[in-house]
């Protein structure tokens, strides 16, 4: 093909393209214009943000189960967590257990008396590599990209409990029956759950959105710290830098974001 013919063809092509783009551009422009008057959904100005939320628990400051009662109570209350007598139906977001149970495999034969007798707080670790999220077939449990919280979408959960099998920390509970009759006092600000879905600690995502720290952190009066793991100046980073901390089952590679000072 000689070069002049090719040139002509190219010109034809380009100009026809140009002819087409005009209306497309117009259409786009009007749509953009119209969208200005449309609805918007945004984050509140007061909302707290982080790359990855994390918690540091200073276990030295908890001597007995009574010290933890107010924290657990605070969480239970604002999240409408039911109380079941039947242990099989239990729902727990935040609870306490012994060192041997919280850190199985890390229990030395002989252990410092303080650690042996001290209660340990347990909650979801909001892992950076959460196996529960990997397992969920519907993305009903997911890791929120904006701040790393592992959340539950109760609307979507089919109740297959794969996430419970996948979580190596026993952080999840299933609603074996309708929880409503077992909630002492319902807080209308937070939904209850329905039978047949899984639930767990949500790092108080609903409070962070309003600029408040998690309820348990607030109730702990300094015994718990909460902050951004990836902000080198945050309180949690400061504590991790200056204290020896351990995490639960670190060897499994889930990268838990709850640190314990022992």
């Amino acid at each position: 093909m000689d070069s002049s013919r090719r040139r002509v063809l190219q010109l034809f092509g380009i100009s026809s393209l140009a002819l087409m783009t005009r209306p497309v551009y117009n259409a786009l422009a009007t749509e953009k214009h119209a969208q200005k008057a449309k609805e918007q959904m945004i984050r509140g100005d007061k909302a707290l943000t982080a790359k990855q939320w994390a918690m540091v628990i200073d276990t030295r400051q908890f001597e007995s189960a009574e010290d933890m009662e107010p924290l657990i109570e605070a969480c239970n209350k604002i999240h409408n967590i039911p109380h079941f007598e039947n242990q099989r139906h239990e729902i727990k977001w935040l609870w306490e257990d012994h060192y041997h149970n919280v850190f199985p495999g890390k229990g030395a034969r002989f252990l410092s008396e303080a650690v042996e007798s001290r209660p340990f707080l347990v909650l979801c670790n909001h892992c950076e590599n959460p196996p529960c999220v990997r397992a969920c077939p519907t993305q009903a449990t997911f890791k929120r990209a904006s701040d790393g919280i592992v959340l539950m979408d109760f609307h979507r959960c089919i109740g297959c409990r794969f996430c419970m099998a996948a979580c190596p920390f026993g952080a999840r509970s299933f609603n074996w029956r309708d929880p409503r009759p077992f909630i002492k006092e319902t807080d209308p600000k937070f939904p209850t759950r329905t039978k047949g879905v899984v639930e767990k600690c949500n790092f108080c995502a609903e409070r962070l959105a309003e600029g408040k720290l998690p309820a348990c952190v607030e109730a702990a009066e300094g015994k718990l710290a909460f902050g951004d793991l990836y902000d080198p100046d945050s309180e949690v980073r400061e504590l991790i830098k200056t204290n020896y901390t351990i995490r639960r089952k670190q060897e499994l590679g889930t990268e838990p974001c709850v640190y314990y000072i022992v």
């Binding site: 008057a37 449309k38 609805e39 918007q40 959904m41 945004i42 984050r43 509140g44 909302a47 997911f142 929120r144 904006s146 701040d147 959340l151 979408d153 109760f154 609307h155 209308p188 600000k189 939904p191 995502a205 959105a209």
Partner: peptide, 29 residues
Amino acid sequence: DKWREKVVREGDRIYVSPSGKQYNMSLSN
């Protein structure tokens, strides 16, 4: 449905209506 998707999954909780007014996206509240 849009509200719940936004609030639950993305954490955006404020609705700005076409008239510019702001609301907390919450069925109960």
